[in-house]
């Protein structure tokens, strides 16, 4: 076993002075922050930050463009989901949070569509592999949203309607086809 560290000097070994040093640091923070908190309350010194915390949900951190939020299903011009229920996202999902039920689409050119498309965000590990796997540009995680808390587990299983209604955060859209886009720009399957 290797012990990392330095030998304590006599003063350090007494601890008393070190304790006082620690107390001084915290006290300094206390009074500094206290001063500015009160100043903010009275409307002064608004530009000085006295706390590093963010008042979520009123405030949110601006996230990176690559950040993965709540899933979104991209739509066709008629508003129906682009998803063809190929279940590749369900296959690739490492935590099995996606559950699709497929059925025959009345239009033989589309052929297959999801009757139900559920994402269990309580299980989701936000890896984004579903985005990668999707061959038809249907699932994206660019809504920039954090899932809100729910009162039941079922509240946190997002269904097809919810996911279709999500829109990408302005400027964050990863798909080349915006929701309801006409001619698809990415068209791996001719769909």
């Amino acid at each position: 076993m290797k012990i990392v560290g330095h030998k304590l000097s006599f003063l350090e070994n007494i601890y008393l002075f070190e304790i006082v040093r620690g107390l001084v640091i915290t006290t300094r923070h206390f009074f500094y922050n206290m001063f500015f908190h009160i100043a903010h309350l009275l409307g002064y010194q608004q530009d000085v930050e006295a706390a590093v915390t963010i008042q979520y949900p009123e405030q949110t951190i601006p996230v990176s463009k690559r950040w993965r939020g709540v899933h979104r299903i991209n739509t066709r011009p008629d508003g129906s989901p682009r998803c063809v229920a190929c279940m590749l996202c369900e296959t690739v999902c490492p935590v099995q949070c996606i559950h699709i039920v497929a059925e025959e689409h009345p239009d033989p050119a589309i052929e297959k569509y999801p009757v139900s498309f559920e994402v269990d965000v309580t299980r989701c590990c936000w890896c984004g592999m579903c985005e990668e796997a999707c061959p038809v540009d249907a699932i994206y995680m660019d809504s920039g949203k954090i899932p809100k808390a729910g009162y039941s587990r079922q509240d946190l299983v997002y269904d097809k309607e919810t996911l279709t209604k999500e829109v990408p955060l302005p400027g964050y859209q990863r798909s080349l086809n915006p929701p309801g886009a006409g001619a698809p720009k990415v068209n791996p399957m001719g769909l």
């Binding site: 063809v84 229920a85 190929c86 590749l88 052929e111 297959k112 061959p135 038809v136 399957m189 001719g190």
Partner: peptide, 11 residues
């Protein structure tokens, strides 16, 4: 042959 393996049942 169409490249629609994702929606083909035989895939």
């Amino acid at each position: 042959h169409p490249l629609d393996c994702p929606i083909c049942d035989k895939a």
